[in-house]
């Protein structure tokens, strides 16, 4: 793999994860448990969509084939997506949504913190802007997980069920492959093993305060960020997200 191909892959991973999670979170708009939560979720989704525009825009530039961020978002099929499996999981109840958010935010925060030192000004710049947004996302999602975990018997049970369901998707965030290794070598991406230990420290503290029990299985699903095997959910999401661009090829909106 050339350096450019690896960088393109890496940028797709960043942009596809924010795209797919932003899309999932936007599905809540108009349906959240309280008006304040509705508005807050929309802010998170808007931040993630904005980050997607930057990451995929840069990916298109790096690829050099004339594809825009919109082309990449709207005109690729499932196997060409490089997002984490975690973010394509359906929203479920609010507990599952907020726990998915918290797990991703805790990873995202550490990753972006490191990417602000990337040996590529474009990447460092995007990371610096995104980090400000994600610092707040993490604050909000972790406090909500704590509030619901340590809330009523029902809210605790729902959060625990969400954690059990989503935990197998945590490992993929930190599983380094050839792309990660190449990016690490060229001074762009951090060592994922280091991120994992910081992630664990933070998540352990949140879960303790939330009176939730971390599943003791280390089993990790994989296939999202490599694109080798996504879940069935992604295809259904794409049929919605890409509908207009696919049904009216070449139209501008």
């Amino acid at each position: 793999m050339t350096d450019r191909a690896a960088l393109f892959e890496y940028l797709l991973r960043l942009g596809d994860s924010t795209l797919i999670l932003g899309h999932r979170v936007s599905e809540w708009c108009g349906h959240a448990p309280a008006l304040e939560e509705d508005i807050a979720l929309a802010n998170t989704a808007l931040d993630l969509i904005g980050q997607t525009q930057m990451w995929l825009g840069l990916a298109g530039e790096v690829e050099g084939a004339g594809r825009s961020a919109d082309d990449l978002a709207m005109l690729r099929d499932v196997w060409e997506f490089r997002n984490l499996l975690l973010v394509e999981q359906p929203n479920g109840d609010y507990g599952k949504t907020i726990l998915r958010q918290c797990l991703f935010d805790a990873f995202h925060f550490e990753l972006l913190t490191e990417l602000t030192h990337a040996r590529d000004d474009r990447i460092a710049g995007i990371a610096a802007k995104a980090l400000k947004e994600v610092t707040y996302h993490l604050d909000r999602s972790s406090e909500t997980v704590i509030g619901l975990g340590d809330g009523t018997e029902e809210s605790n049970a729902r959060l625990q069920a969400a954690l059990d369901l989503l935990w197998p998707y945590v490992g993929e965030m930190f599983a380094a492959d050839a792309v990660d290794a190449a990016m690490h070598k060229s001074g762009i991406a951090p060592d994922l093993a280091v991120l994992r230990s910081r992630f664990d420290t933070r998540i352990d503290a949140i879960l303790t305060e939330a009176t939730l029990t971390k599943p003791d299985s280390a089993y990790a699903q994989s296939g999202g960020k490599t694109g080798f095997r996504h879940s069935e959910h992604l295809g259904h999401m794409l049929t919605q997200m890409q509908w207009l661009q696919r049904a009216y090829p070449g139209a501008t909106w």
Partner: peptide, 19 residues
């Protein structure tokens, strides 16, 4: 229509409006 908006920018604008 938020999840079916044709471009990322349209999606962001519509979401901001509904918000």
């Amino acid at each position: 229509w938020i999840t079916r908006a044709p471009t990322l920018e349209r999606k962001a604008i519509l979401l901001a409006k509904v918000q």
